[in-house]
Design a protein around this nucleic acid. Structure first.
Ligand code: MN
Ligand code: MN
Ligand code: ZN
Ligand code: ZN
Lengths: 138, 138
DNA sequence: GCGGTGTTGCAAGTGATTTGCATTTAACAC
DNA sequence: GTGTTAAATGCAAATCACTTGCAACACCGC
C-alpha cells in the first residue's frame, strides 16, 4: 500500500487494521468507482469477509480523510474511488447497461470563479456526471 | 396550469386528476428544487393532503414525461423542479446551511461533443452541481 | 506484555422510496 | 347523464441503502 495513504491514516489518528487494508486493496484494484455492496462482495470473494457496516464506516472515514472520492450517479446508492495518484475527473454512465467510463477531463476550474463571483459562495467542490447510451446499448 | 403540461399528460395517456393538479401547482410555485417530503408538506398546508406515495408516483411519472427535472445534491434524497418555461441550468448548495441557489448557466454543450467523440456514447443528459459555503456560513 | 483508544461484528434502527391491492376517479363513448 | 374501462389513489407493508449502539477485540506506543 502507498506510503501516502498510511501517512494520511496516521495523521488522522486512524489504525491500519487488517479489514481496513483489505478494503483499501479492493479500492486500489478497481479503476472505476464501486459501491459499498460491491466492495463487500469482492472482499468475500477474496476471503476477507467482513461486515457491511465495517465497509460503510471505512468508506465514510476514507472520504473524510480525502483518500476516496464519492461518485453519485443517481443509482440510489453511492460509489467511491480512490483518489491516490489519479487526476480529478468525471464519469459517464450508460442508461441501458449501467456501464461507467472515466472521463479524464474537468472543464470546471474557470467556471468556478464565475460561480463564486455570481453567488458569493466559496466553492469547495462540484459534481459533474454524464448520462447516455453506450455503443452496445445504442 | 400551462397548456403544454396538459398536452404532455394527455399525450402520455395520463389523467388530469385533482391530486396531480395540486402537485403541479406546488411545483410551479417553487423556484428552487423541492423534495417529495416538502411537496407533501406544502400540499397539506394548502389543504390538499394526499398520500406520500402518490407524491412519489407523480414525481416519477412527471420526470418520465420530461416535465420535471431531478436534482441530486447528495442529501440522501432527491429534489425535483418543473422544467416548464425555464432554461436548463444548475445549482450550488451551501455545505453549512443547505441553501440552494440557481446558476443560470451551463458550460456543457461544447463539452458534450468531446465526450461523445471520446467515449462513443450518445450523451443524453448530465448533472453538474457545486458545493461550498454561502456568505452567511463562511 | 500492558493499557488506552480506535475498530469490528452483530443486531436493531432510520429514512427515503417502492409496491400490492382493493377502492376511486377521470375520460370517453353511447 | 350512464356505463365502461384504464389509470390513479390510499393505505399498509415491504425494500433498500445506509447508520448506530454496544460489547468484544485489535492496533500502537511505551
Ligand atoms: Mn473514475
Ligand atoms: Mn433550479
Ligand atoms: Zn471537475
Ligand atoms: Zn448543463
Amino acid at each position: 500500500m502507498a506510503d501516502s495513504i498510511v501517512d494520511s491514516l496516521k495523521a488522522g489518528g486512524k489504525k491500519l487494521t487488517k479489514p481496513r487494508q483489505a478494503i483499501l486493496a479492493i479500492l486500489e484494484s478497481n479503476a472505476l468507482p464501486v459501491t459499498a455492496a460491491e466492495v463487500h462482495a469482492r472482499l468475500k470473494k477474496a476471503h476477507a469477509h467482513m461486515d457491511l457496516a465495517t465497509v460503510y464506516r471505512n468508506l465514510t472515514m476514507l472520504q473524510e480523510l480525502g483518500l476516496v472520492d464519492p461518485v453519485g450517479l443517481r443509482e440510489g446508492q453511492m460509489r467511491y474511488e480512490v483518489r491516490h495518484g489519479r487526476e480529478h475527473h468525471h464519469h459517464i454512465q450508460c442508461r441501458g447497461c449501467g456501464r461507467i467510463v472515466d472521463l479524464m477531463l474537468c472543464p470546471i476550474k474557470k467556471l468556478t470563479e464565475l460561480v463564486e463571483a455570481q453567488t458569493k459562495f466559496a466553492v469547495e467542490g462540484h459534481s459533474l456526471e454524464f448520462f447516455g447510451w453506450c455503443p452496445q446499448c445504442r
